[in-house]
């Protein structure tokens, strides 16, 4: 049996938990790769803002080149730190730049068994916000199995907000001017 190929998507803020989950859940002889994508839109927005100034002031400064340099250095350092934490000296380091979600999906397009992805967001409560835009896209479109992990402590089920009283769930909007009968659980509570 050939070794599984595991790609760990390394993102700022959540990478440590992601790497730890890969170590914990997959055999040590798996073929590991670490993937980092530098978003192109951030440097682009910062550069565009200076174009909007008609390039005035501070001649000779070229922010965009610096943004790309900074981002590239940071990405390389992050991958090195992740490899260190993973403890596999032979792990492949994949560095890409572009639209994050599309780069991730294309990086795992062939020959990958599992993509390890961390949730984003505020973990003090469970909710739909635990996937940022790019993560949501990757979960929807990755052509391989996706392992979705909590980047730090897994919150308990009691962190789900209690159901709201007196309102039907969102998908059951009542027609205007007409009061629907209360849902069964609601009726039960008031008996």
């Amino acid at each position: 049996m050939t070794a599984m190929r595991i790609v760990v998507w390394v993102v700022e803020g959540t990478w440590e938990g992601c790497v730890d989950a890969a170590v914990e859940h997959f055999p040590a002889d798996s073929e590991f790769a670490l993937l980092h994508v530098t978003p192109s839109d951030v440097a682009e927005a910062a550069d565009a803002a200076s174009v909007g100034l008609f390039g005035r002031g501070f001649p000779g400064r070229r922010p965009n080149r610096r943004y790309d340099d900074i981002a590239a250095d940071e990405g390389a350092e992050l991958l090195a730190a992740a490899a260190d934490r993973l403890g596999h000296a032979d792990a492949e380091l994949i560095s890409r730049r572009g639209r994050v979600e599309r780069e991730v999906v294309s990086a795992v397009a062939e020959g990958v068994d599992v993509l390890v992805v961390a949730r984003d967001g505020d973990h003090s409560r469970l909710g739909p916000k635990s996937l940022a835009h790019a993560t949501r896209f990757v979960v929807d479109h990755a052509p391989c199995a996706v392992m979705l992990v909590w980047p730090d402590e897994t919150p308990g089920i009691d962190s789900i907000p209690p159901p709201k009283h007196g309102h039907p769930p969102e998908h059951e909007h009542p027609p205007k001017h007409e009061r629907p009968p209360p849902p069964p659980h609601h009726r039960h509570e008031h008996l």
Binding site: S50, F58, Y67, L78
Partner: peptide, 23 residues
């Protein structure tokens, strides 16, 4: 102009140094 040309690169570098998301 100072924010766009002088402060923004510093913020970018600061976020990178902290290894947080820049956006």
């Amino acid at each position: 102009d100072a924010t766009v040309v002088l402060l923004t690169p510093v913020v970018f570098a600061t976020v990178a140094r902290l290894r947080l998301r820049a956006k």
